[in-house]
Design a protein around this nucleic acid. Structure first.
Lengths: 228, 228
DNA sequence: GCAAAAGTGTTGTTATTACACCCATGG
DNA sequence: CCATGGGTGTAATAACAACACTTTTGC
């Protein structure tokens, strides 16, 4: 593969990294979007954060940098998974751009105040998004689909949860992502049997009602749940 | 995302498409490999088929072209799925190459005689492969893992089967891919209940023994099997 | 003592596993 | 008639779905 020397005419494309960054706030699945003020989208166009790779960067590093520079997300604790590479010839009207798309996850509780407040970039409920710039509608749809699918058979949800949470909070997060109600008793039985949660020696107090047992994910890795 | 004008210095990388093409022959999972005679691998190095994108191609088109040109696989019936994009800065010693990897599938029966016989390119059992050029060991490992995983919850195996097959043949194919024995009765019960197979009005005769019922996959699409 | 969320078990149904024998055919 | 692969059923176990009441707390 690849020619011995890369003749300039083979460097016809630029590489970009785009990110679909998810969080859950107020029991709503939200995505970070930015203003796109570039040809052919002058103003009032909304898109996903992303941008070109620099020569010393790999795609994931570039995705992280653009999250910081364009989406104002300074946290280094963003969890990223590669989603898909979009290489259609005319996906960007301005020239050939091949985009490596990532989906990314951050618990709302880990965001700074500045990262929660809107500025050049802001959080929007997934259901409220369409008519994004470029092919970002397609990216978003793929990201949501992949998130749902991976929520079923991995512990990816751990990347949307704070360090400590109650089972009810975890259930609500699953319900938000899967967009359907779950049965409280069956949910608890199943999650506890999976052996991925550790019971903490404390409860969430200060609420008006009965204190709830706190849990944490035992491993910080996203692991596959054995289905077969 | 992306600058209004793509300055030449941002076109620092070339794009490649690499393919892990699988087939099953003699109850062995095999992959198509080629000779790599490029710096720094002069001769005797084996790698996966692939190569650079041309300006008018998207990544999948390029993958198909390189399969034809370098791997001698003329068939247009190759089924391709995007696997992963490798963008590490130094993955190719000769310069910056970002590779979009695909895994691909073709039933042995659909190959022409020329495509079965070795020439510049040939079929090798997966288990016999290591020390491939570039980062192709990693690509292959990822492709095998993805194939196994998708064999569990999709009908991807249909892309490794001929148009008509017996249940024993299908079971053997699963056993080869999953690298474990399956129970004949349970396998049949499960697959028939999934409702993805159509019983054909004929049997495989000409064998020495009792003729076996022939089936086909009802849909040519690879569909997800409902697990949850 | 009441409002609200936390927590807990049982039952019916469905899927999964393990396992062994008869059938149809060609030679 | 025999060798070989084709084809089938049952019972025990495990997973899943549906469903309602008691407990603990703050006020």
């Amino acid at each position: 593969m690849a020619l011995p020397e890369h003749s300039p005419e083979l460097k016809f494309a630029v590489l970009a990294a785009d990110v679909v960054l998810f969080t859950i706030d107020e029991e709503i699945l939200k995505v970070r979007v930015i203003q796109v003020n570039r040809p052919p989208y002058y103003d009032h166009m909304v898109g996903l954060p992303g941008g070109l790779l620099l020569p010393h960067e790999n795609a994931e590093e570039s995705a992280r940098r653009h999250l910081k520079e364009k989406a104002g997300i300074q946290s280094d604790e963003i969890y990223l998974e590669q989603l898909y590479t979009f290489s259609k010839v005319d996906r960007d009207k301005r020239g050939r751009v091949v985009a490596v798309a990532y989906h990314a996850f951050i618990p709302w509780e880990k965001l700074s105040d500045a990262e929660k407040e809107p500025s050049n970039s802001w959080w929007v409920p997934v259901v409220a998004l369409d008519n994004l710039a470029y092919d970002h509608d397609e990216m978003l749809a793929l990201a949501v689909e992949r998130l749902r699918s991976r929520a079923h058979y991995t512990t990816l949800m751990s990347k949307l949860m704070p360090a400590e949470f109650t089972l009810t909070e975890l259930e609500k997060a699953y319900e938000v992502v899967l967009a359907k109600d779950l049965d409280k008793r069956n949910f608890r039985k199943k999650l506890l049997k999976l052996n991925v949660l550790t019971e903490l020696p404390r409860k969430r107090t200060g609420g008006k009602f009965r204190p709830a047992q706190l849990y944490t994910f035992t491993s910080s890795d996203v692991i596959s749940i054995e289905v077969l």
